[in-house]
Design a protein around this nucleic acid. Structure first.
Lengths: 257, 257
DNA sequence: TCAGACTTCTTGTACCAACAAGTTGAGCAA
DNA sequence: TTGCTCAACTTGTTGGTACAAGAAGTCTGA
């Protein structure tokens, strides 16, 4: 009959009950002691089962409070509208998106001149360890850490566009600033991947166990030349990325009605 | 000094050694007993530390063999070239991509007529629980499970395009088949998200602990009307998704040289 | 030589105990 | 009422033990 280990049975039973709504999002689970009695298992065995669900992102635990079913409140990001010449990308694309969703944006900003790590140099088609400007952004929504964004600009571009090294935001947006210097971003290549966070990422984004990160990189081109490389790291439990390609005008008109 | 719990110290130390190359990808870690001696900790404590790294996707364990550093062999998917009128999407887009990478593709295929779950009905703009055709695909690369793909077609479309219910591939591709009936896919909206796999997904994709899934959904439109909704679930450790937007012809010509 | 048993390594499961530490609410004192 | 202490809950950490089970090489007997 029960070939499965006991801690698996505990995890499966609890997952079923969460799925069917016995324990709704945000609600508390019975304590380890109660579950221990219910499943006739030791506290350690029950903990193994709970740990499984935690690492699967289904529940979370906090000392003194107990276990709770995780809530999923996702935020939709529009990646294809994010950055084009009509609506230049800058910090404000994020601010307006968040504000229009009725949330409160907050970000910290930092600029530094560094050497380019190998994999980034490759994207920017410059020598490894050569100079680059890094503009780094740590973003919050309603004081919850949301994402980090690091954009690298190659040194040759900084020579032409010195304001990139200015600390603080460039008011009109970097894309528009570069455009005013005759450097047009004509296209970009995006890459999206997912993995579990590094401890550093988990710290910055305050990610609990069992939550992956969504990593979005964008290489912007002006002609054949890469002019920027942006790495954005999102909390996987709070974000979805959207792309719209082709002619969706008929749909959008219909939506508006 | 050591405010951190001992199992954390174990995890941190091992992570450092993996990062700096002491243990390279695929190599075996010392056994629990050896680590127990090295860190002067009980086997349980060492196991806690190792478990942390497993659930973070850094290492994997197998009974009898020990712990090993996880290898990351990623496969790049091009989402923006995947499906357009010049290169209609069908099962072969996957096959050709895999073959051209020198790998061996394999897939199982299934067609069924079902009722539409609520969130899918919403995307297709049809009544919940109404009839729809589901074309389901389970894909492998070199016999390793790679992704699952489920595409839903609304009932009204199936009336016009009866071959959608045919079991087995449609040789010329569904997009081209629909096009031949005057139903052109003029645009699509993509959504990408990540989370930890459900037990069902973990089973189908043979995902170990600490590996998230990358979920890619695409709604295809013909005018204002959604004509298909595709959900593709990838193993997060093996896939990256690429989008190319705008004019990258200058870059591509440069690459070719 | 070869097949099978056996030993020895590994991790997996399950239990017990004890104390640390975070959270909450009851109850007491000013 | 207000503010504080403290008891009673919760999970977190660390130690121990025992046996199950998978993997791999050794040793033995045909």
């Amino acid at each position: 009959m029960s070939k499965q280990p006991k801690y698996q049975q505990v995890a499966d039973a609890l997952r079923r009950e969460i799925d069917n709504g016995t324990y709704g999002p945000g609600s508390r689970l019975p304590s380890e002691a109660e579950l221990s009695a219910r499943f006739d298992a030791s506290r350690n065995t029950v903990r193994s089962g709970l740990n499984l669900l935690v690492s699967q992102g289904l529940i979370s635990s906090s000392q003194g409070l107990g276990y709770a079913v995780r809530k999923h409140e996702v935020f939709k990001l529009n990646a294809s509208r994010f950055e084009n010449l009509n609506f230049p990308q800058n910090g404000d694309a994020y601010s307006t998106d968040v504000t229009s969703a009725g949330r409160r944006p907050h970000q910290t900003f930092r600029v530094e001149v560094t050497t380019t790590p190998g994999h980034i140099a490759e994207q920017l088609k410059v020598e490894p360890e050569s100079r680059a400007v890094l503009r780094f952004c740590h973003r919050f929504v309603d004081d919850v850490p949301w994402s980090t964004q690091a954009t690298y600009y190659p040194d040759w571009l900084v020579q032409e566009a010195p304001r990139l090294t200015e600390p603080g935001d460039i008011a009109e947006g970097t894309t528009r600033y570069l455009s005013s210097l005759g450097i047009e971003q004509v296209g970009y290549a995006d890459e999206i991947l997912t993995r579990m966070p590094t401890p550093e990422e988990a710290r910055l984004l305050e990610i609990g166990a069992g939550v992956p990160v969504l990593i979005w990189t964008r290489t912007g081109y002006s002609g054949e030349q890469p002019i920027r490389y942006t790495i954005t790291t999102f909390r996987g439990d709070l974000n979805r990325m959207n792309y719209e390609i082709g002619d969706l005008s008929a749909r959008d008109e219909n939506e508006a009605k």
